[in-house]
Design a protein around this nucleic acid. Structure first.
Lengths: 335, 335
DNA sequence: TTGTAGGCGTTATCAC
DNA sequence: GTGATAACGCCTACAA
């Protein structure tokens, strides 16, 4: 059906081995051969069959990136840098987007089987899934943006923000501004991210001798605008005299802002809001969002550096925390 | 190295043929065989080698989606629906994200070579690239969101918004509100999208007996916030008494809004802004953005329906326009 | 219902 | 520097 290197070999007068060598830019080919063969390749618009190629190749030279959630703006904003960085280092970059319901480790195992990458970067991860199946993976991996410390695998490093510290900083900021009736919008607590952030919140309250009643002040929400909106409505219903909110993601904060406004309240005059992540969008909002900015450039950079190091020396996993910054925007004010 | 169906065959006491049949859910296998083989498969955590599989398979049963730009919020918001819809119809869904600099048709040709999909959906496309190379693709394809009419390939359909009409509606709206000093922020005009939208703008002006001086009133910009911001600054410099702006994408409009605010002007009191696309975000902004909403749900739905139809009967390409709606937000007001 | 064997298109390993 | 040939792991006839 399709044209193969065999056809190219016949047409060019060379053997398949030589054609393969040319196609892979091997040095041990004469210029005449290279020229003649490439001519035929172009003439027939030949394309290599990657299935055959990867079937035969023992070890591939590629880095895989597995992203959970094509709608995640934080991840989206990191992809270009990651991809460029990997390619600049001479590796091929295999990108896979999975949705929330798919099993990222299962997928990774299959990728290892099919493409034998040298390492994997995970953007977004479900810890339970990692606990259950990650032992099937034996190449170096890095969790980008989540800590993998508690998972404790020798080949699973991580580069992330200190969630507890960062959340604490957000709530501290609100408390310093004089707020006392503070609500928290966050993820469901089965994951370590929301749990850590909530832990940080609680610490901020207790260190300031303030009560924190989770049932009253905490409202779980998915990390999307619509859920942030609804969660904020519930919080406003439960705590009518609330004056500030910390949302565990900017996107949720955005939904919350609109909910506040739709109740006829103003930001920051009536309610102060702090987000989390520091996605680009927050700087363009007319009421710039005060947010905990994860240093995504540095996280991306270090993730790759660490992955490369592990590929090189196969040393034990490291778990690095990258400093965050609280960016004071216009969505908060002293009470 | 890795475990193969041969190993499974040996362990289970069956032949490789039977193992293959079980793995592919073929009906012509006894329950005992299926059971016994699956037991061994699970015991050894066997995973099929897709390279070998696809190398051998003549025709794959999959639909490919090629997306240009992982940062494009309009595309991101359509992916889930597309993916679910395709999988609900029993097809496998192959997703590839490319960045702006990569050649989507080149990539598609390679995908056809390797995975032999039944059809391809393109989200985002460069017309020049299609002109040059699309003739190498002979399976049904659909351009999702861009018109492919002028490309005139028998196997390239498209489902899109009438760009000229929609842009005209946006500018008409501003004119009806009494605005006369109107600026336009748009893409570089080598692509058909920006060109069509600009054409629509011009028509709106001329039908209302208004002048439109491109050099003065049109400012090109990439479809990202930062460029929208800068382009708006230029427009404000050139036309100090400007009262309204139409931006050819919501993301650009967002940048423009912030630029306006940073000049100490207010939206919509001093400047009205209309966007394009109608991404979810626009509904959550505190100053809800007036925008031309592309009916992305319907575009996604029809794109797949058309692709399926073409796969079935291989009939000639169709180019469908899906009605848009102008959503009046809070970013515009009568002059 | 199950087994056998050939071949998919490439790379790798020999020779020459 | 180049050629011949044996794998790679699976699917698909065809035979039993």
């Amino acid at each position: 059906m399709a044209i193969t290197i065999k056809d190219i070999a016949r047409e060019s007068g060379y053997a398949v081995g030589t054609v393969s060598r040319v196609l892979n830019n091997r040095p041990d080919v004469s210029d005449t051969a290279r020229e003649k063969i490439m001519e035929v390749v172009n003439k027939y618009n030949f394309r290599i069959n990657n299935n055959a190629k990867h079937l035969k190749q023992r070890a591939g030279t590629a880095i895989a990136i597995i992203v959970k959630g094509s709608n995640n703006m934080l991840f989206a904003s990191m992809m270009e840098q990651l991809q460029n960085d990997i390619e600049d280092r001479g590796y091929e970059c295999l990108i896979y987007y999975l949705n929330e319901t798919e099993n990222e480790v299962e997928h990774a195992i299959q990728v290892c089987n099919d493409r034998k990458p040298m390492g994997i970067l995970f953007l977004g991860s479900n810890h339970q899934v990692f606990q259950q199946q990650f032992s099937n993976i034996d190449i170096p991996c890095v969790l980008v943006t989540n800590s993998g410390e508690s998972l404790n695998y020798p080949n699973l490093s991580s580069v992330s923000t200190d969630d507890a510290e960062a959340a604490k900083a957000a709530v501290d900021y609100l408390i310093k501004l004089g707020h006392r009736k503070i609500g928290v919008l966050g993820g469901h607590l089965d994951g370590p991210v929301a749990a850590s952030r909530l832990k940080g919140c609680k610490l901020a309250f207790s260190e300031n001798n303030l009560e924190f009643d989770s049932d009253l002040q905490y409202e779980p929400s998915m990390f999307v605008m619509s859920h942030g909106y609804k969660a904020m409505e519930k919080l406003l219903d439960r705590i009518p005299d609330i004056t500030a909110v910390f949302a565990m993601s900017d996107v949720m904060a955005l939904g919350a802002m609109r909910a506040v406004r739709d109740r006829g309240l103003r930001i920051p005059e009536d309610i102060s809001i702090v987000g989390f992540d520091g996605i680009e969008l927050t700087e363009y909002l007319i009421t710039r969002l005060t947010t905990v900015r994860q240093n995504r450039e540095e996280i991306a950079k270090r993730s790759i550096e660490i992955l490369m190091e592990k590929i090189r020396d196969n040393s034990n996993a490291v778990h690095e925390l990258i400093p965050f910054r609280l960016i004071a925007g216009e969505s908060t004010k002293p009470l």
